[in-house]
Design a protein around this nucleic acid. Structure first.
Lengths: 322, 322
DNA sequence: CTGTTAGCGCGTTCAA
DNA sequence: TTGAACGCGCTAACAG
């Protein structure tokens, strides 16, 4: 930077001004400095800058999982990462990832809260912990609704689920049932609500099995539903992974998709497109939501009341063909 | 840190010594310092440390992809991330992710090479660029073989493919064909070689379709193979994603798996376990390989001749049942 | 084994 | 609009 100044014929301080903000510097000087930067191939030292500014340009991604070694098997996380990185592209800001085992969450979250710089994205953090984290550090967005007062971005879970059910009845199905997520997960709750109200509106009693966002739940739930309601002809699954389980159980039971039973998942992750048959799914724009949260943190525009709710349009594929 | 020293009754420098290495400090002093650290809840400032040491504790993960927005759809990447993070757990070292669009690779790689600190992990970097990168920065490991002289860790691709073919013939299949990966991908090359030699050893002419590590390749390759060799009764796919495509094409053609046609994939990603039927697959221990590479970088034990080759055991599931 | 001292590279005040 | 000077929090020489 000393050199940049020298080459541009100005002091180090002026060069710094140009490189950082560029304000209160004459047009001519600015050009000369940028030119020198190019010429010398100068790149600022992030560590030094961080020390001087007292803040590192970094966004913290915080993932809580029952089994930290399993995060590699969840398509959701990589979509989030992808969204964050795209929002960070062209920025000097980096992403820092913390994967926390569920049991360690209370302690580890406090540790992380202390070191947060620009902001943090929370995934899978239960409301209590989310609220605590937000209290300790502000500058936070939760992916999926958390406690009241914790900024969050989520998909229109209820509306998405509703559109799935409506689609199924509209295309001629007579008995649409569901495999739900866990009763305490906010996303799962919304989807369940949407399913139930849409069922009622269509003149049917809501029929569903308890589940969870995993394959096994789909398999077990489907077998249970088939046993109790052999005349079902459509299943709404709380997420794509669950839907994959539904697909397997249906195959095991000799029911064909979509001929005998129609299937709709939720997420529209790449699982939906690689499944056989390709799966109709409610699209959750995860990348977009993560990018949006990231940009909000960068712009420091997240307050306790900050909230975004994104549409979740139905992506129709073969699994629900009439 | 000044405070830590004061509380422990020593100078700042001594406190620093204890916190960093702890060598050449008397037992008693060390205890006192650690005690003070606890008491004050002291946490070192990473930026300051980085500046003083002249090096940031960070590992760079570099991913090249044809479409950077699609990295969220590739299970391989999240497994790598997961492996790196597990190796970094308990360390002060962070992970920094760079996703690079294929066309930008030459320029961007040079940029990144300059800022690498502890070391870099390369994914999907073609040999030429890999060699160039290694020349510029050393401290690199490629996941999957790169150019000669570039440290790398890879799975026993050929042997893994061989075991898949042997398994299929041993369980009674008569005509095992393959959908390959791209001809210029090192992993794909190894798997192809394994398939071919195993086929020959089993007394058959190797039959395969060109492909790529994607769904579409599996679909197209399978339709082509079925047209040319209607009597095939087993397919080896170069990766799980391709295998999902094979599954779809077989379904479209009315062939049942495993009754009419057996299927074996490669990777043993979570796709293999969510597929219907569950898919036999050659296990590539991605997380373990990434963790191993990371540890090698941390220990600075990677030289031009550093190389690890990990076994790729067959994971047998329903798709290849006799 | 420990204390003293000198920067690491940069942002930012204050004066000019 | 610009330059000089200070300090961010820490590590690493060098003495003692």
């Amino acid at each position: 930077m000393e050199d940049v100044g020298r080459v541009a014929g100005v002091s180090r301080a002026t060069a710094s001004r140009v490189v950082t903000g560029g304000s209160r510097v004459s047009e001519r000087t600015r050009n000369r400095v940028w030119h020198a930067v190019e010429q010398l191939g100068y790149h600022p030292d992030l560590a030094a800058r961080a020390l001087a500014k007292g803040r590192t340009d970094v966004i913290d991604l915080i993932i809580i999982d029952e089994d930290a070694t399993q995060v590699g098997s969840n398509p959701y996380y990589s979509r989030v990462v992808s969204g964050i990185l795209s929002a960070l592209a062209g920025t000097e800001t980096q992403m820092r990832t913390h994967v926390i085992d569920e049991p360690d969450a209370p302690t580890r979250l406090d540790d992380v809260a202390r070191i947060v710089e620009v902001g943090a994205l929370l995934i899978n953090v239960p409301p209590t912990l989310g609220a605590r984290f937000a209290a300790r550090c502000g500058r936070v967005v939760s992916l999926g609704r958390s406690a009241v007062g914790v900024p969050s971005v989520e998909a229109e879970n209820a509306l998405g689920a509703r559109s799935a059910v409506e689609h199924l009845y509209r295309t001629g199905r007579r008995k649409v049932v569901a495999v739900h997520g866990k009763p305490n997960n906010s996303c799962a709750i919304g989807r369940r609500r949407g399913f139930q109200s849409a069922s009622v509106d269509a003149g049917h009693e809501p029929i569903g099995a308890e589940g969870g966002f995993c394959l096994e739940a789909g398999v077990a739930g489907t077998h249970q539903l088939l046993a109790e309601h052999p005349d079902l002809d459509a299943i709404f699954a709380a997420c794509d992974l669950t839907a994959m389980g539904v697909l397997r159980a249906l195959s095991e039971s000799g029911r064909r998709v979509p001929d005998d039973v129609a299937l709709v998942g939720f997420d529209d992750s790449f699982l939906a497109s690689v499944a056989t048959p390709a799966m109709t799914s409610v699209r959750q724009p995860v990348e977009h939501m993560a990018a949006m949260a990231t940009r909000a943190l960068l712009a420091n525009e997240t307050g306790p009341s900050w909230q975004r709710i994104e549409p979740a349009p139905l992506q129709i594929r073969r699994s629900s063909a009439a």
